[in-house]
């Protein structure tokens, strides 16, 4: 195949939104801003498209959806059936050898670049439209065969019931959806968490809020634990700390990520040093300035690298904040309720 469909993150930027999806384009843009992101590559929407075309799967799925007729919109049961049927078609269609080989060779190159055979990576969906229900993320994936398998599963997730329903609602084509995939190195996380350049509850833009825990960021993002909380004044850079007793964290093992007890001697200690906090703030303020919008970012501190190379970013996006988040949720719920009456 002539057309390029796998890219290194460094090759990408905001303008590649449609090509590789939001997540990959963002990671690319972040590298341009001098942020350290985990090394990795992006599979563009053409990857999925190619798989669909070469195997004839696209036509089969198109024909299947065409056979369902108009009333798919009206019946959740039919949407569930359609989801199952489309996924079955995918499951019955193995990845052509050349496509698999391309993904595998890029993965091997990534392993070589990091100097780790069977490098543990995260495989994440990267849609160009934020689509509910189509958000597969696989952490700690190792080995070329596993990586290819997970990529296929991300593609398959475009036929989750919710994603189908969403496309029907928005009047988008239901039988296909562009989706990119990010394959990035798993960071050996000492600590991780989120950073917002706005106080989400009040909309106060003079402070930066950092929340973090030992281990991977999942425990903070999921809201399962009470994290350490740091509030930094953007002008004076004064740090206000609210430390918590961090009893549980998420760590990587050979079998994937698991919840575990934090070793007793670490529970009461802050998960970030002051110099790390200030470095996080420094970079975050630069990103905020670049985009001209308050940012919602995810960070990881690497366990093996020296400061400041240990500060790694995995996400940056415009922050939703204050009443606006609640309002956006309420708007969404109202939309869904109105939909109930359109059956």
């Amino acid at each position: 195949m002539a057309k390029k469909w796998i890219y290194a993150m460094e090759e990408l930027g905001q303008e590649h939104f449609d090509l590789v999806g939001r997540k990959c384009a963002n990671l690319g843009e972040m590298t341009r801003l001098g942020m350290r992101v985990p090394p990795g590559f992006a599979i563009s929407v053409d990857g999925f498209e190619q798989y669909m075309q070469v195997t004839g799967l696209g036509e089969r799925i198109e024909a299947y959806f065409a056979s369902l007729g108009e009333d798919l919109c009206d019946s959740v049961q039919k949407q569930m059936d359609a989801s199952q049927a489309a996924k079955l078609l995918i499951a019955q269609t193995p990845l052509p050898a050349d496509i698999a080989a391309e993904i595998e060779s890029n993965y091997e190159a990534l392993c070589a670049r990091c100097g780790v055979p069977d490098l543990p990576v995260a495989v994440r969906s990267s849609g160009s439209v934020s689509m509910p229900g189509q958000m597969e993320t696989y952490l700690y994936v190792r080995g070329a065969a596993e990586v290819t398998r997970r990529v296929l599963e991300v593609w398959e997730s475009t036929f989750n019931t919710r994603a189908i329903a969403f496309r029907l609602e928005k009047g988008m084509p239901v039988d296909k959806a562009p989706i990119g995939v990010a394959v990035i190195q798993m960071v050996n996380a000492r600590s991780a968490g989120v950073l917002l350049t706005v106080v989400p509850t009040t909309g106060d833009q003079d402070q930066v809020v950092i929340e973090g825990n030992w281990g991977l960021g999942e425990s903070v993002v999921a809201g399962d634990i009470t994290p350490d909380n740091f509030i930094v004044n953007k002008d004076s850079l004064a740090i206000e700390k609210k430390l918590s007793t961090k009893q549980r964290y998420v760590i990587s093992t050979l079998n994937g990520t698991v919840q575990a007890d934090v070793p007793t001697h670490l529970q009461e200690l802050p998960c970030l040093q002051d110099e790390e906090i200030l470095e996080l703030v420094r970079i975050a303020l630069g990103v905020e300035k670049h985009f001209g919008l308050p940012q919602d970012m995810e960070w990881v501190v690497d366990n093996d690298l020296p400061f400041p190379a240990n500060i790694i970013w995995v996400q940056a996006r415009p922050a939703k904040f204050s009443a606006s988040q609640k309002e956006a949720d309420a708007d969404y719920i109202v939309d869904q309720m109105a939909r109930l009456f359109r059956r």
């Binding site: 049961q77 569930m80 919710r162 329903a165 869904q336 309720m337």
Partner: peptide
């Protein structure tokens, strides 16, 4: 009940 039915639907879909 409108809220309840929406929740039922989401459970089916999600």
């Amino acid at each position: 009940y409108t809220g309840y039915i929406l929740f039922e639907n989401l459970c089916r879909e999600l």
